[in-house]
Amino acid sequence: MVKNIVSYIITMFLILFIIMIIVLNVFSNTILKKEYTIANLKTGNYYERINQNIVDGFKDYTVQSGLSDEVLEKIYSQDKLEQDINSMIESLYTGSKINIDTESIKENLLNNIEIELEKENKEIAQSEEEALTNYMEAIVEVYKNNVLYSEKVVEEIGTVLNKANNIINKAQIVIYLIPLVLVIILIVINHKQLKFLQYIGIGLLATGLFSITPKIISELKMDINNIMAINQATSNLIQTIAQDILNRFTVIGIIMIVIGIILIIIHNVKACRILEETKRSRH
């Protein structure tokens, strides 16, 4: 009786630690990994969509500027945009300083404007110089705001990600070691009739049930597929990553449930057979 109670208590702790291992693994391989985020940017066409947002934003200012859309041609390249976005991602994960060069954009824009004015035989009056400077600043701001919504927000998110990574790095050894010890204890005190399989099976089954719960809650109570943040491209990125994380928990959960039930059945088959043999030998 006491052995049973102790085993169940150990199983409860085992469940908690396996849940921690799953959470640690899922997050370490997804949102806490820079390469994962960049891969999602590529597969979700994030760069192209941000580029379209920038082009639309440029046109909003150009339409009221007296200049044609031709002044916007080739003021930045797709490669530069990707580099700048990746530098923002780098800053999120490593805390490095974000360095977005906007001087080249201004220079190219000014060149294009001068070419257009020469072509149209127009000259800029002294009173228009400030308006022109304001226009170029507005164009640069559109580019910067689409690449980097807010330096402060990026810093804050970066701090959270770095903290999470530090905690995981420090806690990893403990979180992997303790369940191993618990399993060994279970095996030692329940080695007869493979009874330890029952407890480990119950532990895995319970962990599996816990793992599939976030997906169920998100389907019933949360509207993840319609999250809107900053712009459509960023919203889709967040939705994709969130769904991927939930799906990983679900897959792991299903695997745990299946393995748990199998271990329980193996133990029960063994236990029932031994019981039958004992009954026969008594008769």
Binding site: Y8, M12, G201, I202, G203, A206, L209, F210, I264, N268
Partner: peptide, 18 residues
């Protein structure tokens, strides 16, 4: 019967955690 009993125990464990 034994398997169902163990599954119920697993549900109880997870209910306690929740």
């Amino acid at each position: 019967k034994a398997t169902i009993k163990d599954i119920i125990v697993a549900f109880i464990c997870i209910a306690i955690i929740f």
